[in-house]
Design a protein around this nucleic acid. Structure first.
Length: 734
DNA sequence: TCCCCACACGTTTTT
DNA sequence: CGTGTGGGGA
């Protein structure tokens, strides 16, 4: 009898032992899912399955890494031969080996991220003379992404286009795709789409992989889209040992093409499926679980499931009615301090969750006022920073000179006298001749019409690139990245600029990433580095906990747990979000997001709503969220900020409430007020010190406007001059 | 090439 | 209110 099964509950043990045939594990929040998956992999290995025959897919790199580590602890180095990665990383690996069978790409393709492809879409719109007001680039990006996730190529999109607009969109899609191919580049969706296409059109490839992977595991199955669904289906078709794990109640990425039916209909796809439900929750108290169960029970399109726990009772859920978002933030901050003082709870054990990023501002200010250390996850992305993208662009050109998109980006970065005129001459020539941009710039004899001066600069650039390319196969990634930064003149340019400090630091950080990469289990070469950089987000290596309170959106919180969690902004129009209120299916997804939020809390949950909230500079009233009403009253402890507000208000002279003419565009017509609750404005003079909630103390440089509309220009040390409206900005005299 | 202003817009985003 | 963008001017 395997030791692996010790300590597992009967359902978990069964899920581990059931190794043959399709298996659906319906794993509720906190039911020990990761443990089951890792034990299952270890068990398979123990049963003699070769590690290279096991394919395990997760949705995040973080989950993949965690699972790798845990399996490694159980079985040792054998784990290194497992195919354990995200869908996208698996596809990238697969495509490096198999993409040339399509005859359209070579194996050294590069992967473009959302920013890269958005830029490309804008170019396409220009070339097609399409108005970017009517064909909004972001929407077009979403449209193409959705089409790809549904496995629709440009041709099929065109065939389905039955109106003018759809035909224009089809043309855009076609041009966009053409450009990707020319650049020998794939977008995220292509990784999945092309992998599926190869499996569907190359029987010999399909057979090889079908035979190879005898056991396939897929985590977070509720979030798979059509392409991912097909990928799993094709790969598993021979052995049929497909084990999927998921929780339909935690499906919150419907808007990204995730199809909840993939999990709901699994038994129909595989009639011999064994279904195992993991319903015992090891994370939260009974009070918290009852609230979660009660809320999710309001969704009609779901299979009934009830999480239970043997952690009876627990702290009641505190429901706070805040006056406004600042009051809410103050309440959260004070509660955090209380936990810290009374129970010596570390800051890292507490998290503040919200529906939309814009809510974070007030919360941050509240934390700062109380000197509470915090981390915000997923706001500014490391790999989205200009300087990082620039260096990556260099690296991608070295790896794949066909990537004109990248070459274009670095042509004059750092500035080297290659202006717009030169660039358009070069691209025109490339288009006319059918040559790649790289071929054009690296061939001085072509009649491109660029000035001799520019030509000289181009020769230097081409020389640099050839030189670096020559070294690429022999140097380690760290040295290559460093060489790019320095020899391109990039670092020198930043050093000249006194505002270049932060950027230089970020480049240093990129070097650290390159150095750490060499230590990892992938071979240290440019190909692997670029693939990794393209597919890894910085949420993955964000140090959570670590003595700081965590602030994040509910989406980012999925899969995490905290002893104490604050669920903020529970208002109709915020959460559920106003944009979903017209559509019952979308409200159900909001409810699942709420379910995810509630189940993050282990010991104590706070929920809060604000009676009034400043949105887009206007005070707006939203009623409490329906989700609050759906929580059982018996588990709630109500508190309110009204009393405090009334006391503050009594000190001020009364004034009438003046409704605005302009109605709400937010779906439920919130009532807006013209006046802020604090109408007494201080008189500011240049030279005075001002204290700001976010930027600290600064000096007033200039004052303009009068009364309510007075604005200040304030210089904050190290942060530049900010323009602030006295009426709204969180400032006071210091 | 940069800077300033007017104007529009404003969910979530594992890869 | 904030941010991003595009036009116009220096």
């Amino acid at each position: 009898m395997s030791q692996l099964l010790e300590g597992l509950n009967p359902a978990q043990a069964e899920a581990v032992r059931h190794t043959e045939g399709p298996l659906l594990i319906m794993a509720g929040a906190g039911s020990g899912k990761t443990r089951v998956l890792t034990c299952r992999i270890a068990y398979l290995l123990e049963q003699g399955v070769a590690p290279s025959s096991i394919l395990a897919i997760t949705f995040t790199n973080k989950a993949a890494l965690e699972m790798k580590e845990r399996v490694n602890k159980m079985v040792g180095d054998m784990s290194r031969q497992l195919w354990l990665s995200t869908f996208h990383a698996f596809c990238a690996r697969f495509l490096r080996l198999e993409i040339e069978s399509l005859g359209m790409y070579n194996r050294n393709f590069v992967i473009y991220d959302a920013g890269d492809t958005l830029a490309m879409i804008k170019e396409c719109l220009k070339e097609l003379n399409l108005d970017d007001k009517q064909y909004i680039p972001r929407s077009m990006q979403g449209l193409i992404s959705n089409a790809k996730n549904a496995l629709q190529d440009a041709g099929e999109y065109a065939r389905n286009a039955d109106n003018f607009r759809a035909k224009q969109e089809a043309e855009l899609y076609e041009l966009y795709q053409k450009k990707l191919v020319q650049n020998n580049a794939l977008d995220f969706d292509d990784l999945l789409l092309l992998a599926v296409r190869i499996l569907e059109t190359k029987p010999e490839v399909l057979q090889r992989y079908q035979m190879r992977f005898s056991h396939i595991l897929i985590d977070e199955y509720q979030d798979t889209n059509r392409a991912q669904y097909l990928l799993a289906k094709h790969l598993a078709a021979h052995h049929r040992n497909l084990c999927v794990v998921g929780d339909a109640d935690q499906s919150i990425y419907g808007w990204r093409g995730a199809d909840i039916r993939n999990i709901l209909d699994f038994e129909r796809d595989y009639p011999e499926t064994k279904v195992i439900k993991l319903e015992q929750n090891y994370r939260s108290t009974e009070v918290i679980l009852e609230a979660a169960n009660a809320v999710i029970a309001n969704n009609s399109n779901r299979k009934p499931k009830d999480l239970w726990t043997d952690i009876a009772g627990g702290e009641p859920i505190t429901c706070y009615e805040a006056v406004d978002e600042r009051d809410e933030a103050r309440f959260v901050a004070e509660s955090i301090q209380k936990h810290r003082k009374d129970e010596s709870l570390p800051y890292g054990d507490m998290a503040i969750l919200y529906r939309t990023n814009s809510q974070s501002r007030a919360l941050e200010e509240g934390l700062m006022k109380h000197a509470i250390p915090y981390v915000m996850v997923g706001n500014v992305k490391f790999y989205d920073r200009k300087e990082i993208k620039d260096i990556i662009a260099y690296l991608r050109v070295l790896y794949n000179p066909n990537s004109s998109q990248d070459l274009l980006r670095i042509l004059n970065v750092p500035k080297r006298g290659i202006g717009d005129t030169t660039v358009s001459k070069l691209t025109d020539y490339a288009t006319r001749s059918g040559m790649t941009l790289f071929e054009v710039i690296s061939n001085p004899d072509l009649e491109t019409g660029v000035s001799p001066r520019a030509r000289k600069h181009l020769d230097e650039l081409a020389g640099l690139l050839f030189d670096l390319m020559g070294r690429t196969p022999t140097v380690c990634t760290y040295d290559l990245v460093k060489a790019v930064m320095e020899e391109s003149g990039y670092v020198a340019e930043l050093q000249k600029d006194e505002k270049g400090e932060d950027r230089l630091e970020n480049l240093q950080e990129l070097l650290t990433v390159a150095r750490d990469f060499a230590i990892g289990d992938m071979e240290d070469n440019l190909e692997n580095f670029l693939t990794r950089v393209a597919l890894v987000s910085d949420v993955d290596d964000a140090e959570l906990g670590d003595g700081r309170v965590t602030l994040m959106t509910l989406h980012a919180a999925k899969g995490l747990e905290f002893p104490v969690a604050f669920l903020t902004g529970l208002e109709e129009g915020i959460f559920p979000h106003a944009r979903t209120l017209m559509n019952e299916a979308e409200v159900e997804e909001e409810r699942r997001i709420c379910y995810v939020g509630i189940t993050r809390a282990q010991k104590k949950l706070y929920v809060s709503h604000a009676m009034s909230r400043n949105i887009y500079g206007r005070s707006t009233q939203f009623p409490p969220s329906r989700f609050l009403q759906e929580m059982p009253e018996s588990g709630l402890d109500h508190q309110s900020g009204r009393a405090r507000f009334a006391a503050a208000k009594a000190a001020l002279p009364p004034r009438p409430v003046v409704p605005l003419h302009r109605g709400g565009s937010l779906g439920l017509t919130p009532h807006t007020q013209a006046r802020d609750s604090e109408a007494t404005h201080e008189v500011w003079r240049p030279g005075e010190k001002a204290k700001h909630g976010k930027w600290g103390v600064g000096t007033v440089v200039s004052v303009s406007g009068s009364g309510e509309d007075q604005t200040l220009k304030v210089a904050f040390e190290g942060q530049g001059i900010k323009t602030l409206a006295v009426k709204f900005a969180p400032i006071s005299k210091a």
